[in-house]
Design a protein around this nucleic acid. Structure first.
Lengths: 204, 204
DNA sequence: TGATCTTCGTAACAAGCGTTACGGTAACAT
DNA sequence: ATGTTACCGTAACGCTTGTTACGAAGATCA
C-alpha cells in the first residue's frame, strides 16, 4: 500500500484484512502483525489507525453487527408477506453460503472470546437481545392471534435452531448441506404453523 | 501438591485444573503456567504429565466427550419411554445448570479453536456426527412410523436448537432462564408431534 | 521551489509464551 | 542405613506478542 492513497479505501482494506484474519485464522491469531500482513502494509499503519489491539476486536465486532443488520433489514423490507420475511431473515442466519458461513465462524470466535472479556460479553448480550426482539416482532406479525408466551417460546426455538445450524454448517459443510438446512427450517416453520403456504395457522 | 501423593488423584486434579482454566478463562488463556497455577503446582509437573500444550487440549477435549457421553447414556438408559429418553437427552444439551453451562462454554471454545486446527476440527466433526446419529436413533424410536427423511430433518432441527440454546443460555443466563429453555424444548417437541403425553403422533 | 506537516515504515523494547535441561528430594529396595 | 530410581521444582532459552519511539518520504501551501 503506497503512501496516502485515500483514507476510506485504506480503512476498508484494513477492515477486510481484520475480517479475513479473524475468519480463517481464528481470534487468537488476530495479531497486529497478521492484520498488517493481510492488508499488505506494516504494523506502523495498523497502529496508526487503531490505538491498540482491542480496537481491532471492537471494530470487527461492529463490522459483523452492521453487515448482518444491513442484510436483515433489506430482506425484511423486500419480503412479500410477514411469513416470507420471517423465513428470509431466519434463513440468512444459517450457513447458506460462503459469506454467512464466515460470519458464523467469526461470531463463534467472539462468543468464545467473550468468556474472558466483559466488554465483548456485554455487546454480545446487547446484540443478541436485539436480535431476539427483531425475530419476536416478525413472529408476532406472522401469527397475530398468538399469545405473547407462544410468540416468545417459538421465537426462542427458531433463533436457537438457526444459530446452532450456523455453527454446525460452518464447521462441517459436507455433513450439513444447504438443502438440508433449508428443509430443516421449512419443516420447523411448518411444525410451528408458520409456513408461508397456509395463510393462518390451521387454515387449509 | 506434595511429592508423589498418588498418581490417579494427581491426574484428576490436573484434569480439573485444565477444565477450570478452559471454562472461566477461555482457550487462549489455557497456558501451561495457568494450568499449573490452577492445580497448585509448577510447570514442571504439568510438562511431566503432558508432552506439550496440545496434549492439554486433546485431553480436555476427550474429557468433554466422555463427560457428556456418560451422562447421555445414563439418561437414555433410565428413561421410561423413547420419547422421555429423547427429551432427557436433548434437555441435557442445553444450559440448564452450572455444569452444562460450563460445558457449553468449553464446547464453544473448542469450536472456535477448530477454525485454525485441523485435528480439533476432525474430532469435532466426528463427535458431532456421532451425536446426530444418536439423536436420530432416539427420534426414530420415538416416531417409528416416520420416513427417514422426516427423522433426519426433525433430528437436525432438534440438535441445532439445543446447541444454539446452550450457547445463548451460557452467555446470557439472565435473558434465558432454565424454565424458558425447557418450555422451548417442550413446545418444539409438541410442534413436531413428539411430546410424551400423546403416545403416537396424532393419537389423542 | 522550499517549508511544514501529516503519514507510515523501521526498529527496538519488555512481557509472556512453550519448551528444555538440570539439580534436589522423596520413596523404595536391600 | 545407604545407594538407586523416579519424580518434580527451578531456571533458563528462543520465540512471538503488543506497544512505543524515531526517522524518512510524500502531500500541501506559500
Amino acid at each position: 500500500m503506497s503512501r496516502t492513497a485515500d483514507r476510506p479505501a485504506q480503512g476498508e482494506a484494513l477492515s477486510r484484512a481484520v475480517w479475513d484474519v479473524l475468519a480463517d485464522q481464528g481470534l487468537d491469531r488476530l495479531t497486529v502483525r497478521a492484520v498488517a500482513a493481510a492488508a499488505g502494509c506494516t504494523t506502523g499503519l495498523v497502529m496508526h489507525r487503531f490505538p491498540n489491539r482491542r480496537a481491532l476486536l471492537v471494530h470487527a465486532r461492529e463490522l459483523l453487527h452492521e453487515t448482518t443488520r444491513g442484510r436483515v433489514e433489506a430482506l425484511e423490507a423486500g419480503a412479500a408477506s410477514p411469513r416470507e420475511a420471517l423465513r428470509a431473515v431466519l434463513r440468512q442466519g444459517m450457513a447458506i453460503d460462503a459469506a454467512t458461513a464466515r460470519e458464523s465462524v467469526v461470531w463463534t470466535g467472539f462468543l468464545a472470546a467473550a468468556v474472558a472479556d466483559e466488554e465483548l460479553l456485554a455487546t454480545h448480550r446487547q446484540n443478541n437481545r436485539a436480535w431476539r426482539e427483531r425475530v419476536e416482532r416478525l413472529v408476532a406479525a406472522a401469527a397475530p392471534e398468538w399469545p405473547g408466551g407462544r410468540v416468545a417460546s417459538v421465537t426462542l426455538g427458531l433463533i436457537a435452531m438457526t444459530e446452532g445450524m450456523a455453527a454446525f454448517g460452518a464447521a462441517d459443510p459436507v455433513a450439513y448441506p444447504v438443502a438440508d438446512q433449508e428443509r430443516m427450517l421449512d419443516d420447523a416453520l411448518a411444525a410451528y404453523g408458520l409456513d408461508a403456504g397456509t395463510g393462518r395457522r390451521g387454515a387449509p
